[in-house]
Design a protein around this nucleic acid. Structure first.
Lengths: 131, 131
DNA sequence: GTAGAACCTGACATCAATGTCAGCTGCAAG
DNA sequence: CTTGCAGCTGACATTGATGTCAGGTTCTAC
């Protein structure tokens, strides 16, 4: 699969795919002409990378983590070093905290939205009253 | 309260507090000498700002959102404009997606950590066997 | 009143992922 | 063979929150 196809199928820009490779997150073979060629499994991997980035896992950690993931698509895996498990544990705690935080924020937004809708409804009632 | 105290009590740097003010997120009165003076309620507000930032709410949105929040500390509030409610709804959906994502990532990390611990335990058993 | 800590503004630096541009090359269809 | 799209590298720009430094002022304790 060529880079443009991979980009389209994952929704990730071509630029980012090359960046992932530079960071050692995503491998590719090259054609005779030097163009990147990706296996089918790259799609899943790219999606995972995106998820990890969204979760705030830095690429440095991600680079060591990825080989340890038992890919659903059967890619062989490695085992985490002590340093990595320690880092991941910290990372997990961070994520737990982040989830809690997001829930709070979500609730707050909901409240504001709800109040606004209530106010809008009251407004509508007032209008129909005046009519 | 002076800026250094507020920083200490919220765990946010002095630099950031000044930045919040510049973005219209945090008000302060000034002493005769021009130094910032914060009310007690600023502590809660700063913490909320941090939560929002962590949740990815951009400061531009936050600036309009904050006056609409019914502060626990009794600060008077405003009502959301239609534009704001729309934005917040989108924001909320984004947060929902983010939470889902974080859960997936968390599970993945757990799996890797678990595998590593299993491997470490196996290693330990092997060592005691050899002894 | 003086020393030193805390504060002020303004400017520039940083980080990480991504966008964008330039100049060149590979590849497929006519 | 040419035309044009897609890919390549390398460099610089961007974004947003924050760090940091410089040069000056205010406040507090002695």
């Amino acid at each position: 699969m060529r880079i443009g196809d991979l980009a389209q199928r994952t929704g990730v820009s071509v630029r980012s795919l090359r960046y992932y490779e530079q960071q050692g997150l995503l491998a590719s073979t090259r054609t005779a002409g030097g163009q990147r060629d990706y296996p089918e499994a790259a799609v899943d991997r790219v999606i995972r990378i995106q998820e990890m980035f969204a979760a705030g896992v830095p690429s440095r950690v991600l680079a060591e983590l990825l080989p340890c993931i038992h890919d659903a698509d059967g890619t062989p895996n490695a085992t985490a070093t002590p340093w990595l498990t320690e880092t991941l544990t910290a990372e997990r705690d961070r994520i737990d905290a982040a989830i809690k935080d997001l829930r709070r924020t979500r609730a707050l937004l909901d409240e504001v939205i709800g109040t606004a809708q209530g106010a809008a409804a009251a407004e509508a009632r007032a209008r129909s009253q005046r009519r």
